[in-house]
Design a protein around this nucleic acid. Structure first.
Lengths: 158, 158
DNA sequence: AAATATTTAATGCATTTGCATGAAGATGTC
DNA sequence: GACATCTTCATGCAAATGCATTAAATATTT
């Protein structure tokens, strides 16, 4: 593999970080201004609303949201303290647990979306022309594909 | 402005965050494994090497790297303690200062690039086909363009 | 079934971040 | 030039994150 990245690659990388950070901080600011919890909470709530019975294992949340184990543990803590989720024992695995969304949690997810949705429009949608979103999505999809297993360098995840 | 974002917009947004986060954590891991400082340090070092006389005002660093004021202040602290930069009084502005890169700092920038460059290749370059980087760059560039001043909603920066 | 290894989750401790405030110099106004 | 305002930077304190370790349960091996 060529080790020195070409100029366009470096620029794409730089802009990727910039664009993500800029949009994200704008959106976080919108949520904060509306006195709503941070984006990470929304991700959890959305995953839970989509899950059967509105519950998931912490491990599963970690996997889907790319959270470190201890971050997940503490994020769930905070959300539980806020009454948006509840921890339950996991029937088929004694060491595990289930995180269940509460009615308040479902309500919060909807309230957050009313701010989050428009913010996405403002910071992303409005800046793209017709078809751009698809194209961008496709290109980003390539970045997300698993690297073709390279012998000698077992890529660790997390 | 349409407030509910279209499906493709939401997907583009989701992937933007994912792709940036994934690549970034991979690259950070590579640096850490090489016992090198985090990415943020590199950004500072690079800006300084490019600046005339290898020095910049903290304010300028904040602006270019999108750092919050207190983050910049503390980042400079740590880098100064590590001997990579040095604070100097600013001649033409008594409250300000100048952050100057040291020889060790220049050296560190080069050492980091030897890991950083290949990591960019691995996590970005290698996943894109010919021409993709340019296209991705262009699309991300649109996201970074300043929003056309919208009356009624003075968009705060930071 | 006993022993060993792996998976799941929590937590103590240090570092980093975010927020609010403060200090000190510069700029603008009258 | 005195006064109010804005800019630049640091910092105390609270919250969040990263790291390493531990405990408990399950899975695997022998």
């Amino acid at each position: 593999m060529k080790r020195e990245p070409a100029e366009e690659i470096v620029q794409a990388w730089a802009r990727l970080v910039r664009a993500a950070q800029t949009a994200q901080s704008g959106i976080e600011a919108a949520l904060k201004q509306a006195e709503l919890p941070p984006l990470a909470w929304y991700d959890v709530l959305l995953e839970l609303t989509r899950a059967p019975d509105g519950m998931l294992r912490p491990v599963e949340l970690e996997r889907r949201l790319l959270l470190a184990q201890y971050n997940a543990s503490r994020l769930i803590d905070r959300m539980a303290r806020a009454g948006l989720v509840a921890r339950r024992a996991c029937p088929e695995d004694g060491r595990g647990q289930l995180v269940a969304i509460t009615d308040d949690g479902r309500d919060m997810q909807r309230r957050m979306w009313r701010v989050y949705g428009p913010a996405i429009t403002e910071y992303v949608g409005a800046k793209l022309g017709p078809g751009d979103a698809r194209r961008l999505s496709d290109l980003l999809g390539k970045l997300l594909r698993e690297a073709p297993a390279e012998s000698g360098t077992p890529a660790e995840h997390h």
